[in-house]
C-alpha cells in the first residue's frame, strides 16, 4: 500500500464502473466500499475461507486477495449479479427452499463457487453428486454446520 492511486474502469454485473484506488487494493474492498456492493463478504483476507468469492469472466476467484491491478478488462460478477431480472439463480432458489443456512454469512461465497458448476451440470444434463459438490466447496468454510443442507441444495439445483 501507499502507492499512488489510479483510476480503473471495471465491468461489474454488466455495468461499467469507474473506481480510484491503490493498485494493490483487493477487489473485495472496491466492491464493498467504493461500489457499495456489500453482498460480497470479508472473511479472512487471505483466500482461505471462500466468503468473498466472486466471478472474473465467469470463473470463481477470492476477491480478498485479487488486487485491482490484476482485474483489467475481466467481467466481474458478484452475488448481486446472480439474480438480475428478479430471478434468483437456481442455487439461491434451492438454498431458500432447503432452508440451507443458519447465520448465512458464508452463503454468498458458496453460491458464487457452486453456480458455475451447477450451470455446467444443467447445460450438460448430468446432475451433480454429493462428492463432486463437496470437492468443489472444500475451500469454502461454514461454521454453523449447515454443510449437508447446502450440499443437498446444490445437488438439487443441478437437476435440469
Amino acid at each position: 500500500m501507499g502507492n499512488v492511486e489510479q483510476t480503473y474502469s471495471v465491468l461489474v454485473n454488466e455495468t461499467s464502473c469507474e473506481v480510484t484506488c491503490d493498485p494493490e487494493t483487493p477487489l473485495l474492498w472496491v466492491l464493498r466500499d467504493s461500489l457499495g456492493l456489500i453482498g460480497t463478504r470479508f472473511g479472512c483476507g487471505a483466500g482461505t475461507c471462500g466468503a468473498c468469492t466472486v466471478h472474473l469472466d465467469g470463473i470463481p476467484v477470492h476477491s480478498c486477495d485479487t488486487p485491482m491491478w490484476s482485474v483489467g478488462t475481466k467481467r466481474v460478477t458478484t452475488i448481486e449479479g446472480m439474480s438480475l431480472g428478479d430471478e434468483p439463480h437456481p442455487v439461491q432458489k434451492e438454498l431458500i427452499d432447503c432452508q440451507a443456512g443458519q447465520c448465512g454469512y458464508c452463503l454468498s461465497g458458496i453460491i458464487m463457487r457452486a453456480a458455475p458448476l451447477v450451470d455446467a451440470a444443467r447445460a450438460g444434463g448430468a446432475m451433480l453428486d454429493r462428492e463432486s459438490v463437496c470437492t468443489a466447496l472444500d475451500g469454502n468454510l461454514c461454521r454453523c454446520g449447515v454443510h449437508n443442507r447446502i450440499i443437498d441444495a446444490v445437488v438439487k439445483a443441478s437437476n435440469p
Binding site: 456489500i38 452475488i79 439474480s83 434468483p88 438454498l95 432452508q99 443456512g101 454469512y105 454468498s108
Partner: peptide
C-alpha cells in the same frame, strides 16, 4: 415457518451489521 431473515442473506441483500451504512 421459513426463516424470516434467510432469503435476504442468500440473495446478498444488506442484512448484516457489516452492511449498515
Amino acid at each position: 415457518l421459513p426463516r424470516i431473515d434467510l432469503a435476504d442473506k442468500i440473495l446478498g441483500r444488506p442484512r448484516y451489521l457489516q452492511d449498515l451504512r
